[in-house]
């Protein structure tokens, strides 16, 4: 497979958030600011790349019937590694992301890639796939986080450009749903033009 295509498909064509609608809980939950979105995205990317790598490495040694439980153990281990490392070296980001870090383990994107891609492809393609999908996921989180931060707090990357409050509803939960809905419409439009 063409590795460049394999890498770039995650951004628009097979974007896990805007096109496949997978792993939406953290997408809505942590995107109150652009920086939280990026942090969550990168944590997920790390788990994706590592679990794709290990799954692809051991795919020939795991009997089919225990495939899913084995993948879950592998994913959960990398999630815990991220959890402990963030707690130690990035405690404030860890607090901001809260519950959603351990919940990476049930992010359908991660298990989905392990099952649909890494268990059938070689190690190198699997790593590229994890990286592409992960960064596509990060891109979506960053986009939604920026929109909500700009509209809701009147700032970007904590740099404030208006006095006082923004349109608060975008920081609150209804704004998350509505902003994501409109972003999907935008991506739909873009995809149409591209096609």
């Amino acid at each position: 497979m063409n590795q460049i295509k394999n890498f770039t498909k995650g951004f628009i064509k097979e974007n896990p958030v805007f096109v496949l609608f997978l792993g939406l809980c953290p997408v809505l939950g942590v995107t109150t600011s652009a920086i939280n979105g990026i942090g969550m995205g990168l944590a997920t990317t790390f788990v994706l790349v590592m679990s794709n790598f290990v799954v692809s490495l051991i795919k020939n040694f795991v009997p089919d019937k225990v495939r899913i439980p084995s993948f879950i153990v592998i994913i959960a281990s990398f999630v815990t590694i991220v959890e402990l490392t963030m707690q130690a070296y990035l405690p404030s980001l860890f607090e901001a992301l809260g519950l959603f870090i351990p919940l990476i383990v049930v992010n359908c994107v991660v298990l989905g890639r392990a099952e649909a891609f890494a268990s059938k492809n070689n190690i190198f393609s699997s790593i590229i796939d994890g990286l592409g999908i992960g960064l596509g996921f990060t891109f979506a989180l960053f986009l939604l986080g920026s929109v909500r931060e700009i509209l809701g707090s009147g700032s970007i990357f904590n740099f404030k450009f208006i006095e006082g409050d923004g349109i608060l509803i975008f920081i609150l939960s209804p704004g998350a749903f509505i902003a994501l809905g409109y972003l999907i419409v935008l991506v739909n439009k873009l995809k149409k033009k591209g096609a």
Binding site: I58, V66, S119
Partner: peptide, 18 residues
């Protein structure tokens, strides 16, 4: 795909090792 058969022994060993 996997070339290990899903016998009980294989499954237990794989899970234990992982």
């Amino acid at each position: 795909m996997s070339n290990k058969e899903s016998t009980l022994g294989n499954m237990v060993i794989a899970l234990l090792v992982i």
